[in-house]
Simulated scan of single mutants.
Amino acid sequence: MELLGIHHVSIMTGKAEKNYDFYTKTMGMRMVKKGVNQDDTTSYHLFYGDAVASPGTELTFFDLPGIGPSYQGVSSISATSLRVANTEALQYWSDRFDQLNVTHEEIKQRAGRDTLAFQDFEGTRLILVADNGEQGVAPGKAWDQTEVPVEYGILGLGPTTLTLAKPASTIMILTEVMGFRHTGSYPSLAGDFADIEVYSTGQGGAGAEVHIETRPDLPNARLGRGGVHHVAFRVPDESEYERWADKLSKLGIPNSGKVDRHYFRALYFREPNGILFELSTDTPGFDIDESMDSLGETLSLPPFLEGNRAQIEANLRPLVLDEA
């Protein structure tokens, strides 16, 4: 069994409408699903991805109006990356962020790649990563129905950064349970701290990496708006998903058990530092209940919630998205 890479990353937002504007208009991503949090159907769950909702391209957001701020620290997913084609694209984004007053750093090297760190309006820490022809997990397809030129568009998810005080137990889960391998390191950009260690799975490359930052000087993180709820890793199909479920059970790792999210199958567990991991199938995909041309245009509910649509819609706050 081998995990293919990053499947999706789920984040908290307190302002879904502004979130939609930022990720579809500023960032040029496609809304591929407008649904509800299946564990709390009074809350929206928004998915943004590439042009064809490819696995490994989705940023998802739980809408929780009134949620407090996040506080950075250890035992957290501290940065999420998005892939672009090349360094020229990073320069485009640097200029665009200047024009739109988006907080960002200069272009810097991380793990041998050109990168551009920035933050959304709620302080979510994001990093654009230039592929520059690197081999590994294939990129997605940039959405072309946006003002962002397709050659500079977002191609999917890049490395996920975990910030930890004591990383040994997390590394053990990554390598001995999940099959990641150590593939490099690079200097911390935060000061005189240990190098950031790189772990890869599948074909490797930007779409298949976890970066471990060791920061014993920081307090524990507190999750709020702009904070990352969990990271999911790609399982190719349901057959292998069943094998992963059996493996976690046999190893005695506490987990959610098998969860059907309709668009994918999921398994959830917390690694020893408390970060929530998910294993998610590439299949059946986000077009199981909508045509590819109309993804995200209406409220999608899985079959096990469809019978309660009237009640669910009555309990959801109005969500007015400016799609112009």
Rank of each mutant, 00 (worst) to 15 (best):
K15Y: 11
K15L: 13
A16K: 12
N19F: 14
Y20T: 14
D21I: 13
Y23T: 12
K25W: 06
K25E: 15
M27Y: 13
M27Q: 12
M31T: 13
V36D: 15
D40K: 08
S43G: 05
L46W: 14
L46S: 13
L46H: 12
L46I: 14
F47T: 13
D50A: 02
A51Y: 11
V52W: 09
P55N: 15
E58H: 12
T60D: 14
T60V: 05
F62K: 11
D63G: 09
P65N: 10
G68C: 06
P69D: 14
P69S: 12
S70Y: 01
Q72I: 02
S75K: 13
I77Y: 12
L82K: 07
L82H: 08
R83K: 03
A85V: 04
A85D: 07
N86K: 04
W93E: 03
S94E: 10
R96E: 02
F97I: 05
D98W: 01
Q99N: 00
L100G: 02
N101R: 03
T103E: 04
T103D: 09
E106F: 00
I107H: 01
A111R: 03
T115A: 02
F118C: 00
E122M: 08
I127T: 11
L128G: 01
D131C: 00
Q135G: 01
A138W: 00
K141T: 13
A142H: 04
T146Q: 00
E147N: 07
V150S: 00
V150I: 03
G153T: 03
G153N: 07
G156R: 08
L162Q: 09
A165S: 14
K166P: 00
K166N: 12
P167N: 06
T170G: 01
I171Q: 05
L174H: 05
V177N: 07
M178Y: 10
G179Y: 15
H182V: 04
T183R: 10
G184M: 07
S188T: 10
A190K: 08
A194E: 14
A194L: 07
I196A: 08
Y199L: 10
S200D: 09
G202P: 14
G207C: 10
V210N: 06
L218M: 13
N220C: 04
R222V: 15
H230E: 11
V235N: 10
D237H: 12
E238M: 15
E242A: 15
W244C: 09
I253E: 07
P254Q: 06
P254T: 04
G257F: 05
K258Q: 15
V259P: 06
V259Q: 11
R261E: 07
A266W: 06
Y268W: 15
Y268M: 15
F269K: 08
N273A: 03
N273Q: 04
L276G: 11
E278T: 09
L279Q: 15
S280P: 04
T281N: 07
T281C: 01
T281H: 04
D282E: 12
G285L: 11
D287H: 05
D289E: 05
D289S: 11
E290T: 05
E290P: 12
E290G: 11
S291A: 01
M292K: 02
M292C: 00
D293I: 00
D293T: 02
S294V: 10
E297W: 02
L299G: 10
S300H: 08
P302E: 01
F304S: 06
L305W: 07
L305V: 13
R309E: 06
R309H: 09
L316V: 02
L316S: 04
E323A: 13
E323S: 12
